[in-house]
């Protein structure tokens, strides 16, 4: 279970997060929707301290943490229990696909090399990239890189995987393969996922919980049926109308 309460964050005088709460049960998928500038990416980055929050409390299983005053050690602890999939993939450019997945297992989790290799190959197989294991990121398409990014996150067996608009930088025809992989890991690996995305279809199919954010607050949250098909708030209806009219 991961629970985050009352997260505040300002950049200069602009308050981008104005007290965001979220509760994600283990093994569930939460999709965060919202227009640009709603603070959804900042919120995700605050969870693993890439963008330290000004205020907030975090609970990961039995770990409780004041997000504003976390020590370096606590931040490291949180990061070792979470993993992130980035919009721009951010695979380590100097490592092959296999090394990208193995690296965290070896240098962070201190796993034996052989064990790490077996595990890395298992996850590359899972995302359908085992035949590219010795390729460098520069030799791979965006969709392939993102699938490896997912394998890298998944291999660490984190308590939660954070997806920051994982398909936004992809060519339209590559979006499908990445979404397929995400659906697959939600089903087969029972991974706990928080996904910031614009893919409403993905939210409908996979999410256990949908959160609509705007202006740094959660406007509406609930099951996909509630939020996507019978939204209560006017703002949510407006936002969703753009997608259904397409």
């Amino acid at each position: 279970m991961i629970k985050v309460e009352n997260v505040h964050k300002s950049f200069g005088n602009t308050e981008v997060l104005k007290g965001v709460n979220i509760n994600v049960p283990t093994g569930s998928v939460t999709v965060i929707l919202g227009p640009s500038g709603s603070g959804k990416t900042t919120f995700l980055r605050a969870i693993n301290f890439l963008e330290p929050a000004d205020k907030g409390t975090m609970y990961i299983d039995d770990l409780v943490l004041n997000m504003a005053s976390a020590s370096k050690k606590e931040i490291l602890e949180i990061r070792r229990n979470t993993a992130m999939v980035f919009q721009n993939y951010n695979l380590f450019m100097n490592m092959t696909a296999l090394e990208n997945v193995k690296e965290g297992l070896i240098s962070v989790q201190k796993m034996a090399r052989y064990e790490a290799l077996i595990k890395a190959e298992y996850y590359l197989e899972k995302v359908g990239m085992i035949n590219r294991e010795n390729f460098y990121p520069m030799q791979l398409s965006g969709g392939q890189q993102q699938r490896i990014g997912i394998a890298r996150a998944l291999a660490l067996n984190p308590k939660v995987i954070l997806f920051d608009e994982p398909t936004s930088a992809l060519d339209p025809e590559l979006v499908g393969e990445v979404l397929e992989v995400m659906k697959k890991i939600a089903r087969e690996e029972n991974a706990t996922m928080i996904v910031v995305t614009h893919e409403i279809g993905f939210a409908k199919d996979v999410a256990d919980q949908v959160i609509f954010m705007e202006g740094g607050i959660v406007v509406e949250s609930g099951s996909p049926q509630d939020v996507l098909e019978h939204p209560k708030e006017e703002r949510t209806k407006q936002f969703l109308a753009r997608f259904t009219n397409q």
Binding site: L76, R80, M84, F86, N90, L91, S107, R152, A153, L156
Partner: peptide, 21 residues
């Protein structure tokens, strides 16, 4: 790219691991 550092930190590397690896 700053994303390289972020990715390294996000998987739980220490700063020096991220820097040297």
């Amino acid at each position: 790219n700053i994303g390289q550092t972020e990715a390294a930190l996000s998987i739980g590397m220490t700063w020096s691991q991220a820097f040297f690896k």
